[in-house]
Design a protein around this nucleic acid. Structure first.
Lengths: 231, 231
DNA sequence: GAGATGTCCGCACGGTCGTGCGTTCAGTAC
DNA sequence: GTACTGAACGCACGACCGTGCGGACATCTC
């Protein structure tokens, strides 16, 4: 019974945001989005364990059981929140570059998008994935796995962008892509952390400075030219 | 009432581990240490909010009210846990270098101590302060302030070590100490994060490589010599 | 119209949480 | 010996937690 309820709503999510039938009102999906919009912000501030069905229901003037029925379990709510946050992240950081050709300047744009995504507080508590990574890093279970997967995807995307830039001749052929990806991501996350914890926005400048130096020192003459471009 | 109890036990801690009178048995302080040893580990894995008096009491075969009475409130337990973790951190990372003269190699040793402190899992969930920083970064209150203070202290210590190394001629006079401190700490924390979340210990190698490159590129000839030393 | 479907609510459950009471008990002082 | 102190306990409280059942109420299908 509870299983059927849970799997129904769960499947509804997994199939995406498309209408179930054409033209349906979809009040459910609307409430879902309302809830997820709130849970993403809460989780970025207080963590995924800080989500409480009662609190969400009160804040959104819904009933606790209504929220519960939408997701089937608290864990499924957490997983849905992660998926929703991944979509927002992609939309903010990755999608704007979908038509930008590979190269050093594209990598730099990717980093700038990330820093803007963090400093603009797309999520109230700073980068969503920084918050929940630290929260679930040492635990086990589906939520940890989902967080780890998201991070792997992001790292892989950064590495791919660097590889492509190397392939078009913007970086030296012997560039250690994984190393520079590690360093660049480290700098950006540190800026997020310092900014959120201490309210010190200078950290974003330090990160940008560090990222630029890393990219520049790895670039070929062609790459350096691209990095000096107006953008 | 509860206030007086809390402040009493709180003061007991702040005065340190010394005996209250000479030769006293101090069962209380012993239990305190037992509890804090456990809470530091729990908090590094599940966060300071993951601490629960009942759970701690069960695990250590104490009564919940006994644990509660020792600290006076949950928040005071969290603060005591932070103080205890700071002491452990200092003992592991900073104290071993108290007789090492300032210089580039001392800075490198400081970084190595940190990476060892993280990779040896002095706390089960990796660096304690990484975990609780992310947990409380976007909140307000005494716990946030204590975490922020600890981080400021650590950053300041790193910057001082770099300044001293610059003063003895190991780094260029125009070195931006705050910038390199930011970058070095970013690399180390990223290694901690990646290692704990993904179980990928290669991250420590990447961090060490990055740190060495940063220090080397900032060093004078004298500093480079120090960095090439056997140690 | 009647019926089916899905959304959301009211309400209750068992459990755990932090807190606080009074009490027991070991160790010290007199 | 008695008196005192502090540590730890047993127990209970109100609040909140996630979960689940059954029903109300729209909306769509026939």
């Amino acid at each position: 019974m509870s299983g059927s309820t849970g799997s129904t709503t769960g499947t509804g999510t997994r199939t995406g945001s498309g209408a179930k039938t054409d033209g349906r009102v979809e009040r459910g999906n609307q409430t879902r989005r309302l809830v997820l919009g709130r849970t993403m912000d809460i989780a970025s501030i207080e963590g995924l364990e800080g989500l409480s069905l009662g609190r969400i229901a009160t804040e959104l003037e819904l009933s606790k059981s209504g929220v519960f029925a939408l997701f089937g379990s608290k864990e499924e709510l957490q997983l849905a929140t992660i998926r929703a946050a991944a979509a927002v992240f992609a939309e903010q950081v990755v999608t704007p570059l979908k038509d930008v050709p590979p190269g050093a300047s594209r990598v730099r744009a990717l980093c700038r998008n990330w820093l803007t995504y963090s400093s603009d507080r797309v999520f109230s508590g700073g980068c969503f994935f920084y918050a929940v990574s630290a929260e679930f890093d040492a635990r086990t279970g589906p939520v940890h796995d989902a967080v780890a997967r998201a991070r792997l995807d992001w790292t892989a995307y950064m590495e791919r962008s660097l590889s492509e830039a190397r392939a078009v001749g913007d970086f030296a052929e012997d560039l250690d892509v994984e190393q520079i990806a590690f360093e660049v991501i480290a700098l950006m996350e540190a800026a997020n952390a310092q900014s959120v914890l201490l309210g010190d926005t200078r950290a974003y400048g330090r990160a940008e400075q560090g990222v630029t130096a890393r990219l520049r020192s790895a670039a070929t003459a062609r790459g350096r030219a691209a990095l000096t471009d107006p953008a």
